[in-house]
């Protein structure tokens, strides 16, 4: 903080006039890099989306009933999964869970085809066969259970879906979990009741 600033006053005037006219050549290079980095970043987000769907494990989850009126408030549905609230007996850590802690939920398929949680771990557990692991974070802890958040709680709805949703109903959500842990929703269907 005690940096002397001898050059702050003297070159300021020529810089101001130079900046008004043209950037020096080296700066134009930097600008090109900066814009290219921005384009690459956006492309990177897109590629991560594609890759997660293409390379990931597919898992289906059931939600609690979703209120179609949600769609009046915006262009996304708020999803609450059956695995969003889990009993504390599934916790496999040695210490009690804390809020904002990372949690890895081990999922196993049921005969219906939907996956259910069989354990919650503070570190990523080893999987075998049909099992899959979904990463989340602990939002709330109470005496008998945990509330978890997976970052999959919003679904940006295509317009075709708006017309199909007339009343509260459960949804079946298809999720892709990439080998590097990222997960995204690939499909949402209403469950026949």
């Amino acid at each position: 903080m005690s940096l002397p600033t001898p050059d702050s006053a003297a070159p300021a005037a020529p810089l101001a006039t130079a900046a008004a006219a043209l950037l020096p050549a080296s700066h134009r290079h930097w600008l090109l890099w900066l814009v290219a980095a921005q384009v690459l970043f956006v492309l990177g987000v897109a590629v991560a989306g594609y890759a997660t769907a293409a390379l990931g494990r597919t898992v289906t989850l059931q939600t609690e009933p979703v209120d179609p009126r949600d769609l009046l408030y915006g262009d996304y549905l708020r999803l609450r999964y059956q695995i969003s609230e889990l009993p504390g007996s599934l916790w496999r850590g040695t210490e009690v869970p804390r809020r904002r802690q990372a949690a890895y939920v081990l999922l196993e398929p049921r005969p219906s085809g939907d996956f259910e949680a069989t354990g919650i771990y503070p570190e990523a557990p080893a999987t075998s066969g049909q099992q899959a692991v979904l990463r989340g974070s602990v939002q709330d802890v109470w005496r008998r259970g945990l509330r978890l958040r997976y970052g999959l709680e919003r679904y940006y709805v295509p317009e075709t879906m708006t017309r199909r949703m007339r009343q509260r109903r459960r949804l079946r959500v298809t999720i892709s979990i990439a080998p590097w842990g990222q997960a995204r929703i690939t499909q949402v269907d209403t469950v026949r009741q």
Binding site: V45, A46, A53, G151, Y156
Partner: peptide, 29 residues
């Protein structure tokens, strides 16, 4: 783009890149 691919997550880096780009441009111009 995140919405397009349903990527929301707890990823802080996405928007951080926005602020970093702003700082770079501020210094440049």
């Amino acid at each position: 783009t995140s919405q397009l691919y349903q990527l929301i997550g707890y990823d802080l880096t996405g928007l951080l890149a926005w602020a970093v780009a702003g700082m770079g441009l501020t210094w440049l111009y």
